[in-house]
Protein backbone atom coordinates (compact mmCIF):
# COMPACT_ATOMS: atom_id res chain seq x y z
CA UNK A 1 0.00 0.00 0.00
CA UNK A 2 1.03 3.52 -0.52
CA UNK A 3 3.37 2.80 -3.39
CA UNK A 4 2.74 4.93 -6.43
CA UNK A 5 2.79 3.62 -9.94
CA UNK A 6 5.98 5.50 -10.72
CA UNK A 7 7.71 3.79 -7.85
CA UNK A 8 6.37 0.48 -8.98
CA UNK A 9 7.73 1.01 -12.43
CA UNK A 10 11.13 1.64 -11.04
CA UNK A 11 10.99 -1.20 -8.62
CA UNK A 12 13.85 -3.55 -9.15
CA UNK A 13 14.77 -6.26 -6.75
CA UNK A 14 18.17 -7.08 -5.26
CA UNK A 15 19.21 -9.29 -8.16
CA UNK A 16 18.77 -6.32 -10.45
CA UNK A 17 15.95 -7.78 -12.52
CA UNK A 18 12.75 -5.95 -13.36
CA UNK A 19 9.61 -6.70 -11.48
CA UNK A 20 7.21 -8.03 -14.10
CA UNK A 21 4.21 -9.00 -12.04
CA UNK A 22 3.42 -7.27 -8.83
CA UNK A 23 0.30 -8.35 -7.01
CA UNK A 24 -0.37 -6.21 -3.99
CA UNK A 25 -2.68 -7.20 -1.17
CA UNK A 26 -5.05 -9.09 -3.43
CA UNK A 27 -8.23 -10.20 -1.69
CA UNK A 28 -11.03 -12.12 -3.30
CA UNK A 29 -14.26 -12.63 -1.48
CA UNK A 30 -17.18 -14.82 -2.59
CA UNK A 31 -20.09 -14.03 -0.34
CA UNK A 32 -18.91 -15.15 3.07
CA UNK A 33 -15.89 -17.01 1.77
CA UNK A 34 -12.59 -15.22 1.58
CA UNK A 35 -10.84 -17.39 -1.01
CA UNK A 36 -7.77 -15.18 -1.32
CA UNK A 37 -6.78 -13.01 1.61
CA UNK A 38 -4.35 -10.14 1.25
CA UNK A 39 -1.88 -11.96 -0.97
CA UNK A 40 1.13 -10.11 -2.34
CA UNK A 41 3.46 -11.72 -4.81
CA UNK A 42 6.13 -10.51 -7.19
CA UNK A 43 7.50 -12.20 -10.26
CA UNK A 44 10.64 -10.87 -11.94
CA UNK A 45 11.44 -11.24 -15.58
CA UNK A 46 13.20 -14.45 -16.45
CA UNK A 47 12.23 -16.08 -13.18
CA UNK A 48 10.36 -19.29 -12.45
CA UNK A 49 8.12 -18.93 -9.43
CA UNK A 50 6.15 -21.75 -7.92
CA UNK A 51 2.85 -21.50 -6.11
CA UNK A 52 2.04 -24.43 -3.88
CA UNK A 53 -0.58 -25.12 -1.33
CA UNK A 54 -3.12 -27.73 -0.38
CA UNK A 55 -6.43 -28.08 -2.17
CA UNK A 56 -8.77 -25.19 -1.70
CA UNK A 57 -5.95 -22.89 -0.70
CA UNK A 58 -7.05 -20.39 -3.35
CA UNK A 59 -4.27 -20.89 -5.86
CA UNK A 60 -6.50 -21.05 -8.92
CA UNK A 61 -8.67 -18.24 -7.60
CA UNK A 62 -5.50 -16.17 -7.26
CA UNK A 63 -4.63 -17.09 -10.86
CA UNK A 64 -8.04 -15.97 -11.99
CA UNK A 65 -7.50 -12.65 -10.25
CA UNK A 66 -4.20 -12.23 -12.04
CA UNK A 67 -5.63 -13.01 -15.46
CA UNK A 68 -8.66 -10.77 -15.24
CA UNK A 69 -11.18 -13.57 -14.99
CA UNK A 70 -12.11 -12.32 -11.54
CA UNK A 71 -11.95 -8.78 -10.38
CA UNK A 72 -10.27 -8.80 -6.94
CA UNK A 73 -12.44 -7.51 -4.11
CA UNK A 74 -9.52 -5.36 -3.04
CA UNK A 75 -5.88 -4.98 -3.90
CA UNK A 76 -4.25 -4.27 -7.23
CA UNK A 77 -2.21 -6.24 -9.68
CA UNK A 78 0.49 -4.41 -11.61
CA UNK A 79 2.01 -5.86 -14.72
CA UNK A 80 5.18 -4.24 -16.06
CA UNK A 81 4.37 -1.29 -13.84
CA UNK A 82 0.82 -0.75 -15.08
CA UNK A 83 -2.33 -1.78 -13.23
CA UNK A 84 -3.93 -4.73 -14.98
CA UNK A 85 -6.78 -4.03 -17.38
CA UNK A 86 -10.11 -5.49 -16.23
CA UNK A 87 -10.75 -8.06 -18.98
CA UNK A 88 -8.99 -11.35 -19.65
CA UNK A 89 -8.36 -10.58 -23.29
CA UNK A 90 -6.75 -7.24 -22.43
CA UNK A 91 -4.57 -8.96 -19.86
CA UNK A 92 -3.39 -11.28 -22.61
CA UNK A 93 -2.52 -8.30 -24.79
CA UNK A 94 -0.36 -6.80 -22.07
CA UNK A 95 1.69 -10.00 -22.06
CA UNK A 96 0.37 -12.55 -19.61
CA UNK A 97 -0.97 -15.90 -20.84
CA UNK A 98 -2.21 -18.93 -18.98
CA UNK A 99 -3.10 -22.58 -19.19
CA UNK A 100 -5.98 -24.21 -17.36
CA UNK A 101 -6.00 -26.78 -14.60
CA UNK A 102 -8.60 -28.84 -16.46
CA UNK A 103 -7.40 -28.53 -20.03
CA UNK A 104 -9.52 -26.13 -22.03
CA UNK A 105 -8.41 -26.59 -25.59
CA UNK A 106 -10.78 -25.98 -28.49
CA UNK A 107 -11.14 -29.65 -28.91
CA UNK A 108 -12.74 -29.81 -32.32
CA UNK A 109 -9.99 -27.66 -33.81
CA UNK A 110 -6.67 -28.99 -35.02
CA UNK A 111 -3.50 -28.47 -33.05
CA UNK A 112 -2.36 -25.84 -35.54
CA UNK A 113 -5.66 -23.98 -35.38
CA UNK A 114 -5.56 -23.97 -31.59
CA UNK A 115 -2.19 -22.29 -31.67
CA UNK A 116 -3.38 -19.85 -34.32
CA UNK A 117 -6.29 -18.81 -32.09
CA UNK A 118 -3.64 -17.90 -29.54
CA UNK A 119 -2.18 -15.56 -32.11
CA UNK A 120 -5.48 -13.75 -32.50
CA UNK A 121 -4.57 -10.84 -30.27
CA UNK A 122 -1.26 -10.25 -32.09
CA UNK A 123 -2.76 -10.12 -35.57
CA UNK A 124 -4.76 -7.35 -37.13
CA UNK A 125 -6.62 -8.73 -40.13
CA UNK A 126 -10.09 -7.21 -40.09
CA UNK A 127 -13.28 -8.29 -41.77
CA UNK A 128 -12.62 -6.29 -44.92
CA UNK A 129 -9.08 -7.69 -45.27
CA UNK A 130 -10.49 -11.17 -44.94
CA UNK A 131 -13.46 -10.70 -47.26
CA UNK A 132 -11.43 -9.10 -50.03
CA UNK A 133 -8.36 -11.21 -49.37
CA UNK A 134 -6.22 -8.09 -49.10
CA UNK A 135 -2.45 -8.38 -48.70
CA UNK A 136 -2.62 -8.02 -44.91
CA UNK A 137 -4.77 -11.12 -44.64
CA UNK A 138 -2.45 -13.16 -46.80
CA UNK A 139 0.74 -12.02 -45.15
CA UNK A 140 -0.57 -12.54 -41.66
CA UNK A 141 -2.04 -15.89 -42.54
CA UNK A 142 1.25 -17.14 -43.95
CA UNK A 143 3.24 -15.68 -41.09
CA UNK A 144 1.00 -17.04 -38.36
CA UNK A 145 0.87 -20.50 -39.90
CA UNK A 146 4.65 -20.46 -40.00
CA UNK A 147 4.94 -19.25 -36.42
CA UNK A 148 2.34 -21.75 -35.19
CA UNK A 149 4.34 -24.59 -36.73
CA UNK A 150 7.47 -23.31 -35.00
CA UNK A 151 5.67 -23.21 -31.67
CA UNK A 152 4.36 -26.72 -32.11
CA UNK A 153 7.88 -27.85 -32.86
CA UNK A 154 9.15 -25.94 -29.82
CA UNK A 155 6.86 -27.80 -27.43
CA UNK A 156 7.62 -31.08 -29.18
CA UNK A 157 4.44 -31.56 -31.16
CA UNK A 158 5.92 -31.68 -34.66
CA UNK A 159 3.73 -33.68 -36.98
CA UNK A 160 0.53 -33.26 -35.02
CA UNK A 161 -0.57 -30.05 -36.64
CA UNK A 162 -3.55 -31.52 -38.46
CA UNK A 163 -4.70 -33.66 -35.59
CA UNK A 164 -7.80 -32.59 -33.76
CA UNK A 165 -6.78 -31.59 -30.30
CA UNK A 166 -9.34 -33.96 -28.79
CA UNK A 167 -7.54 -36.87 -30.44
CA UNK A 168 -4.16 -35.98 -28.91
CA UNK A 169 -2.85 -37.96 -25.95
CA UNK A 170 -3.27 -36.28 -22.59
CA UNK A 171 0.32 -35.13 -22.19
CA UNK A 172 0.33 -33.69 -25.69
CA UNK A 173 -2.82 -31.76 -24.90
CA UNK A 174 -1.04 -30.12 -21.97
CA UNK A 175 1.86 -29.19 -24.22
CA UNK A 176 -0.52 -27.90 -26.87
CA UNK A 177 -2.11 -25.65 -24.29
CA UNK A 178 1.33 -24.27 -23.50
CA UNK A 179 1.99 -23.72 -27.20
CA UNK A 180 -1.32 -21.90 -27.50
CA UNK A 181 -0.42 -19.68 -24.56
CA UNK A 182 3.03 -19.00 -26.03
CA UNK A 183 1.36 -17.95 -29.26
CA UNK A 184 -0.04 -14.90 -27.51
CA UNK A 185 3.57 -13.74 -27.23
CA UNK A 186 3.59 -13.37 -23.45
CA UNK A 187 6.23 -12.01 -21.13
CA UNK A 188 4.86 -14.07 -18.29
CA UNK A 189 3.38 -17.54 -18.58
CA UNK A 190 1.02 -18.82 -15.91
CA UNK A 191 0.76 -22.60 -15.74
CA UNK A 192 -2.01 -24.15 -13.68
CA UNK A 193 -0.86 -27.65 -12.68
CA UNK A 194 1.01 -28.43 -15.89
CA UNK A 195 1.92 -31.97 -14.83
CA UNK A 196 -1.40 -33.06 -13.35
CA UNK A 197 -2.08 -36.59 -14.51
CA UNK A 198 1.32 -37.06 -16.12
CA UNK A 199 3.65 -40.00 -15.64
CA UNK A 200 7.21 -39.35 -14.35
CA UNK A 201 8.70 -39.29 -17.84
CA UNK A 202 6.18 -36.79 -19.12
CA UNK A 203 6.76 -34.73 -16.00
CA UNK A 204 10.46 -34.62 -16.76
CA UNK A 205 9.72 -33.49 -20.30
CA UNK A 206 7.45 -30.77 -18.97
CA UNK A 207 10.18 -29.62 -16.62
CA UNK A 208 12.63 -29.43 -19.45
CA UNK A 209 10.10 -27.53 -21.55
CA UNK A 210 9.56 -24.95 -18.83
CA UNK A 211 13.32 -24.41 -18.56
CA UNK A 212 13.48 -23.84 -22.28
CA UNK A 213 10.63 -21.34 -22.04
CA UNK A 214 12.57 -19.53 -19.32
CA UNK A 215 15.61 -19.54 -21.57
CA UNK A 216 13.56 -17.65 -24.16
CA UNK A 217 13.47 -14.85 -21.62
CA UNK A 218 9.95 -15.48 -20.28
CA UNK A 219 8.99 -15.51 -16.66
CA UNK A 220 6.90 -18.44 -15.48
CA UNK A 221 4.49 -18.69 -12.58
CA UNK A 222 3.47 -22.26 -11.95
CA UNK A 223 0.91 -23.90 -9.68
CA UNK A 224 1.82 -27.46 -8.90
CA UNK A 225 1.31 -30.23 -6.41
CA UNK A 226 4.28 -32.35 -7.37
CA UNK A 227 6.87 -31.19 -4.82
CA UNK A 228 9.90 -32.71 -6.45
CA UNK A 229 8.92 -31.05 -9.70
CA UNK A 230 8.37 -27.65 -8.14
CA UNK A 231 11.54 -27.56 -6.06
CA UNK A 232 13.64 -28.70 -9.02
CA UNK A 233 12.16 -26.10 -11.22
CA UNK A 234 11.55 -22.93 -9.32
CA UNK A 235 13.81 -20.11 -8.33
CA UNK A 236 11.34 -19.11 -5.68
CA UNK A 237 8.31 -20.79 -4.14
CA UNK A 238 5.34 -19.32 -2.33
CA UNK A 239 3.08 -21.49 -0.26
CA UNK A 240 -0.56 -20.51 -0.07
CA UNK A 241 -2.69 -21.86 2.74
CA UNK A 242 -6.32 -20.93 3.32
CA UNK A 243 -6.00 -17.97 1.02
CA UNK A 244 -2.90 -16.53 2.64
CA UNK A 245 0.77 -16.68 1.80
CA UNK A 246 2.37 -18.77 4.49
CA UNK A 247 5.98 -18.72 3.38
CA UNK A 248 7.76 -17.32 0.39
CA UNK A 249 11.38 -17.91 -0.52
CA UNK A 250 13.89 -20.16 -2.21
CA UNK A 251 13.00 -23.80 -2.51
CA UNK A 252 14.97 -25.12 0.46
CA UNK A 253 13.55 -22.59 2.88
CA UNK A 254 9.96 -23.31 1.94
CA UNK A 255 10.54 -27.01 1.75
CA UNK A 256 11.82 -27.24 5.28
CA UNK A 257 9.49 -24.76 6.83
CA UNK A 258 7.55 -26.64 9.52
CA UNK A 259 4.41 -24.66 8.83
CA UNK A 260 4.36 -25.79 5.21
CA UNK A 261 4.89 -29.37 6.19
CA UNK A 262 2.16 -29.09 8.72
CA UNK A 263 -0.23 -27.49 6.30
CA UNK A 264 0.28 -30.36 3.93
CA UNK A 265 0.32 -33.40 6.13
CA UNK A 266 -0.48 -32.16 9.57
CA UNK A 267 2.61 -33.68 11.22
CA UNK A 268 6.23 -32.54 11.00
CA UNK A 269 7.59 -36.09 10.99
CA UNK A 270 7.37 -36.91 7.30
CA UNK A 271 8.97 -35.01 4.45
CA UNK A 272 6.69 -33.74 1.71
CA UNK A 273 8.51 -35.92 -0.82
CA UNK A 274 7.00 -39.11 0.31
CA UNK A 275 3.49 -37.85 0.80
CA UNK A 276 2.38 -35.14 -1.57
CA UNK A 277 -0.57 -34.57 0.69
CA UNK A 278 -4.29 -34.88 0.36
CA UNK A 279 -4.32 -33.11 -2.94
CA UNK A 280 -3.27 -35.42 -5.73
CA UNK A 281 -6.78 -35.21 -7.21
CA UNK A 282 -7.95 -32.29 -9.22
CA UNK A 283 -9.99 -30.67 -6.50
CA UNK A 284 -13.16 -29.07 -7.75
CA UNK A 285 -13.17 -26.66 -4.87
CA UNK A 286 -9.96 -25.16 -6.16
CA UNK A 287 -11.33 -24.41 -9.58
Amino acid sequence: MGVTIEEAMKSVDSSGRDVLLDARNVTMQFGGLRAVNDVSLQVHSGEIVGLIGPNGAGKTTFFNCLTGLYKPTSGTVYFAGEPLPPQPRLVVRTGMARTFQNIRLFHNMTALENVMVGMYCRTKTNALDAVFRLPRHRHEEVASTERARELLAFVGLTGTENQLSRNLPYGDQRRLEIARALATDPKLLLLDEPTAGMNPQETRQAEELIFRIRDLGLAVLVIEHDMRFIFNLCDRVACLVRGEVLVEGVGDVVQNDPRVIEAYIGSPQTTPYEQPGPDSGKGASDA
Partner: peptide, 10 residues
Protein backbone atom coordinates in the same frame (compact mmCIF):
# COMPACT_ATOMS: atom_id res chain seq x y z
CA UNK B 1 -14.31 -18.45 -21.75
CA UNK B 2 -11.11 -20.04 -22.99
CA UNK B 3 -11.31 -17.96 -26.15
CA UNK B 4 -11.58 -14.78 -24.09
CA UNK B 5 -8.69 -15.93 -21.91
CA UNK B 6 -6.58 -16.46 -25.03
CA UNK B 7 -7.10 -12.88 -26.13
CA UNK B 8 -10.00 -13.31 -28.54
CA UNK B 9 -12.31 -10.34 -28.48
CA UNK B 10 -15.43 -12.44 -28.22
Amino acid sequence: LAAEAMGVNT
